[in-house]
Amino acid sequence: MREKKKMDLGSLRELLLIGVVIILCIIWTIMNPQFISMNNVTNILRQGSYTAIAAVGMTMVIIIGEIDLSAGSLICASGLVGAMVCKSTNNVVLAVSAALLVGVVVGGSNGVLCAVGKLPGFIATLASMTVLRGLAYIITGGNSVVWTNEAFTKIGTGYVGIVPIPVIIMLVVIIFGVFLTSKLRFGRYIYAVGGNMEASRWSGIAVVKVKIIVYMIMGVLTSIAGLIVVTRLGSGQPSAGQNFEMDCITAAVVGGTSMSGGRGKIIGTVVGVLLLTVLTNGMTLVGINTYWQQVFKGIIIVVSVLADTHTKKN
């Protein structure tokens, strides 16, 4: 009985958020009919896709009770590596695997520092954030990296039918995330470790391994996002992805993930990304000053988290 009530409240929250998204959409459409045009809708989906992909990983990292500040730098670094490999070998498969490898290595080292080295995730990933950003500038010399391979560019700009490829990748990642966290034993381990690490260890969960794998998943998903960003931009920039990690964290928290770990849902995060993307896209279309956009974004975060604590209390 009690269990059922809890679940209702959980989905209530997502329904509430979807309601907010719909209301926002109606407001934007009234203010500017362009908003609901096919063109803009695909645009919103494409804008949201890479944030959603990385935010799925970020949600798992936060559920396990840690954080990843290096996502923005990794987006940049993995995209750069992909672009450079594509430039020199003209081989898309090689470029993509190199970028993903960067994600695995960075995610893995974050995980090792955190789980084996016993550093707080905040510090470990703060450090890898600065290291990666520095590296990105050093290997490029501050210049952008361009390539000629059309197929590589397709990752971020191509379509299958009328659906943009990034959106398809996003859907696959979301399904993977939902399946992993709600259907697999590994997913339950993530919640268990985030809820009570000590108890999880005593009940035989390999806490260290789970943490490292979660960070690796985060790394891989971030580098997928990095590939999309770089191919959409058309060139690898050493300054790309700044503050991207904050967008992911914001989306996760707006979607109901608790920063203290153990609680959160992938679907909530996806709705969070949708809300933030619709918000920024609409504000730009309606012509709200970019400076005010930032203020509104901050207010939305507080309000949505506030709503969260209140649904919890009830």
């Binding site: 928290v253 920063m259 930032q294 203020v295 509104f296 975060i301 988290v305 506030l306 604590t309």
Partner: peptide, 22 residues
């Protein structure tokens, strides 16, 4: 309001920066 410091200050980080630019 019992919100987490990380989130609140992340939000006010946005708010302050936006106000400054405005």
């Amino acid at each position: 309001l019992k919100l987490q410091a990380f989130i609140v200050t992340l939000a006010s980080m946005n708010i302050a920066r936006g106000l400054a630019r405005f």
